[in-house]
Design a protein around this nucleic acid. Structure first.
Length: 280
DNA sequence: CAGGCAATAT
DNA sequence: CATATTGCCT
């Protein structure tokens, strides 16, 4: 009597102690009026709102982690340097937060593009109170299913419940953002250590000196958005293992990580240089 | 909490 | 099969 499963067919272990009250919302909108309005609506729904005007601010807030946001609500009209899709990409890459797009643009194909990129909802302006009130659902969904709603079907391999996510095609060095015709092909959820990325890694390790090359430091030095400590730790492990395979144990300080020709020859790392200007 | 390492997963 | 991710232990 107490438990009311979301879906009788699929008993998820969530005893819904979920409480929409006070959910932390990051609101990004550079239109003062719109921002104010939406902010008011959110507040009157008892959400805890943090309004900001530009993606750069938003990213700072998200990355610094001081506030544990539950959901991001964002507009799409930002300065020439940034656009909604691009911003969405970054958020999806760096966080697992549900992202709701708010825009006056209501043409289906545009909306589809956002949804395809991982937005969990698209609210055409003017935003109705009704919609705002129900926003908690997206957070709840994430809580219940553990991760994203995006499900990748690649090569007929259905992604299981908890993985489809991040990564997006990005040219390694020349950041070409196709504004209108972004291709949504080539999603992989595994980080790929391209030569370029590996090089950054090597540089960082060299700078630190192999003895001080711990994941955290290396990560900081590499300064690659979206790269996580675990990634570096893992890579550190792999490269270390490589070294001991064919390096004379005599050289204590000579790191030999970039091997002649033996690393991976792939090229598929989604991080596009500095999409926004995360300078530091 | 962070780092190493081993077990999984893709 | 290679290697990236997760988990466990220190």
């Amino acid at each position: 009597m107490n438990s009311s499963p979301i879906n009788p067919m699929k008993p998820y272990p969530v005893e819904v102690s979920f409480n929409p009250h006070g959910l932390k919302v990051l609101l990004v909108d550079n239109n003062p009026t719109s921002r104010f309005l939406i902010s008011r609506m959110l507040q009157s729904c008892h959400y805890q709102v943090t309004p900001c005007t530009h993606p750069t601010q938003a990213l700072m807030l998200l990355r610094n982690g001081e506030i544990k946001f539950d959901i991001v609500i964002t507009g799409v009209n930002f300065a020439p340097e940034m656009n909604g899709i691009k911003f969405l990409e970054i958020i999806k890459r760096e966080t697992d937060l549900p992202v709701v797009i708010v825009s006056a643009e209501d043409r289906i194909h545009i909306m589809i593009k956002y949804i395809t990129e991982g937005a969990c909802a698209y609210l055409p302006k003017p935003v109705r109170m009704e919609a705002v009130r129900l926003l908690w659902q997206h957070v709840a969904r994430k809580e219940i299913f553990g991760f994203k709603q995006i499900d990748n079907v690649e090569d007929g391999e259905p992604s299981s419940s908890r993985s489809g996510e991040k990564e997006f095609c990005g040219s390694s060095n020349g950041v070409r953002m196709e504004d209108e015709q972004t291709k949504v092909r080539g999603k992989k959820h595994r980080l790929v250590w391209t030569d370029e990325l590996h090089q950054k890694f090597v540089d960082a390790v060299e700078q630190l000196g192999i003895q001080n090359a711990v994941p955290k430091k290396v990560l900081e030095l590499m300064n690659v958005p979206g790269l996580r400590r675990g990634n570096v730790a893992s890579h550190l492990q792999v490269t270390a293992h490589m070294q001991e395979s064919f390096t004379c144990p005599n050289s204590s300080t000579g790191i030999r990580i970039g091997t002649s020709q033996s690393f991976n020859g792939r090229t598929q790392w989604p991080v596009s240089k500095n999409s926004t200007g995360y300078g530091s």
